[in-house]
């Protein structure tokens, strides 16, 4: 049917290299999630703080993160910051861009999760003699984490997929970057990228299944 000979061997030979790239991909995704969750919690706090400046800052961050493409955010980190004399390596730019994006989406998730917990619970905690912090720590936070857990793992999968954008700013150590480099050397585009797609699929599925397993163990009651 096709006048084309597939060379799967070449792609399979490069599998170890690509798996190394997959590790970098996972590393970036994990780091960006950790930074993202920390920023998102801070942003959620800012929003609830009632301080005009802080909540304005949080809203601006969240709206920009949610209303512009992730690729644009990475470009901003890579090219835009150069105006201020800050020159980030592709790795850092990718990490900053994805973490910024994650924080925006996660903050929105956390806000939704907080809303799902009735105010009466805090009041009940307070009237049992808890301080405000205790009520938040022991009553609200555990329930909030439960509600926010699955959206957060979804965001983790998104982060993994987003790392592939690094190749557009010259990243060459993550899975997409390694694949692109191999492709530039051999022009076996289809074979290499098909293999990369399989690896991405396996990683994404593994993360989803692991998250489900963790959720069913942690949130049994």
């Amino acid at each position: 049917m096709f006048n084309y000979t597939f060379h799967w061997n070449q792609a399979l030979k490069a599998l170890p290299q690509m798996l190394d790239g997959a590790l970098i991909t996972l590393q970036i995704a994990l780091l960006s999630m950790l930074i993202g969750v920390a920023c998102a919690l801070a942003l959620t706090g800012f929003r609830l703080s009632g301080n005009r400046v802080l909540s304005g800052f949080a809203t601006t961050w969240i709206e920009i993160a949610r209303n512009t493409p992730a690729l644009f955010q990475i470009y901003m980190a890579h090219f835009g910051l150069g105006n201020f004399g800050i020159h980030l390596s592709p790795y850092t730019a990718l990490l900053v861009g994805i973490a910024f994006n994650n924080a925006g989406y996660l903050a929105e998730n956390f806000r939704g999760a907080l809303k799902a917990i009735p105010d009466t619970q805090t009041r009940a905690g307070r009237s049992l003699g808890m301080t405000a912090l205790q009520a938040f720590r022991f009553i609200v936070l555990p329930q909030m984490l439960r509600v926010a857990f699955l959206p957060t793992t979804n965001q983790m999968v998104w982060a993994i997929l987003m790392t592939s954008l690094g190749v557009t700013v010259g990243m060459n150590t993550d899975l997409a970057g390694v694949t692109q480099e191999l492709n530039a050397r051999s022009f076996r585009t289809f074979e290499f990228f098909a293999l990369a797609a399989v690896i991405y699929y396996v990683i994404a599925k593994a993360v989803t299944l692991a998250a489900r397993a963790i959720a069913s163990r942690m949130f049994r009651y």
Partner: peptide
Amino acid sequence: SVPLLIQLV
């Protein structure tokens, strides 16, 4: 579950 960039390529 596969990045859009990879799908496009």
